[in-house]
Design a protein around this nucleic acid. Sequence first.
DNA 1: CGATTTTATCATATACACATGACAAATAAA
DNA 2: TTTATTTGTCATGTGTATATGATAAAATCG
Lengths: 138, 138
Amino acid sequence: MWISGTSQYAIRAVVYVATNGADTPVRVGPIAAVIDVPRNYLSKTLHLLARSGVLRSVRGPRGGFQLAIPPARLTLARVTEAFDDVGQRHCLLGRTQCGDRFACPAHARWGKVSDSLQTFFRKTTIADLMSDVRAAAR
Amino acid sequence: MWISGTSQYAIRAVVYVATNGADTPVRVGPIAAVIDVPRNYLSKTLHLLARSGVLRSVRGPRGGFQLAIPPARLTLARVTEAFDDVGQRHCLLGRTQCGDRFACPAHARWGKVSDSLQTFFRKTTIADLMSDVRAAAR
DNA sequence: CGATTTTATCATATACACATGACAAATAAA
DNA sequence: TTTATTTGTCATGTGTATATGATAAAATCG
């Protein structure tokens, strides 16, 4: 609903890699199986994450994917930036000319919500999500 | 980005109808021209809004569309419900099993933002947008 | 070096949102 | 009652996100 399916896959995969790829790279197969996304499509998505600097890829035996950025400094906006632009304000009504000069009818009220959305994606890190998972496990 | 293009069209059209259709119905042609959306597509969208109870349609000469609900009681969630489900919580990561029992990694933190989104769409009315437009005109 | 394992790339398929165009149905007014 | 005007409906087209499958390229290990 709020971000593209590919961005959803990306976040799920990055959390998995952060959790399980601390020492050795993680292969596409297991990631796809655990986070439940089509293997070949995920392969392409992880490749884009690597080209975008979020992951590091290693080919050949014992290869796979690892984080290229420490989880505490890796934000959701950074992870999804290859697929969606969630760190910036967008006009709710899809007007290109929507700004403080020519505002759409929803501009003022949407601004407040949009700010909290941007803050969420720009401030929340993969490490935050990992610690929430650990907290929930208790 | 945040809601479908059709929902964006719907809100823009409903605001226009609320503003210009107080006494007589508004025709599709002028609406499409002013809010800048494809005429035939808007025709279908307005028809869905009528079937969803948001608009009233009148056929024939002097026909067109009018609000079926007073603007002060017409929320954005109500306008878009035929196209998107914005008044309810959705898992950010697209997990169907995401709830308080089996939470996705983003569940807790996303909950706060999601609440403010739901509140926005369920509390903001067409009358609110109209009064913002009038305020901005001064 | 050769065999195996893994990601990289390419070509293509599918599903759905968005869009177009033609014609039917209803209504109002002359 | 006829004509003009408007929405309603249907059939179809287009573009893009998602998905699949085959093959190439790279790296490790025996």
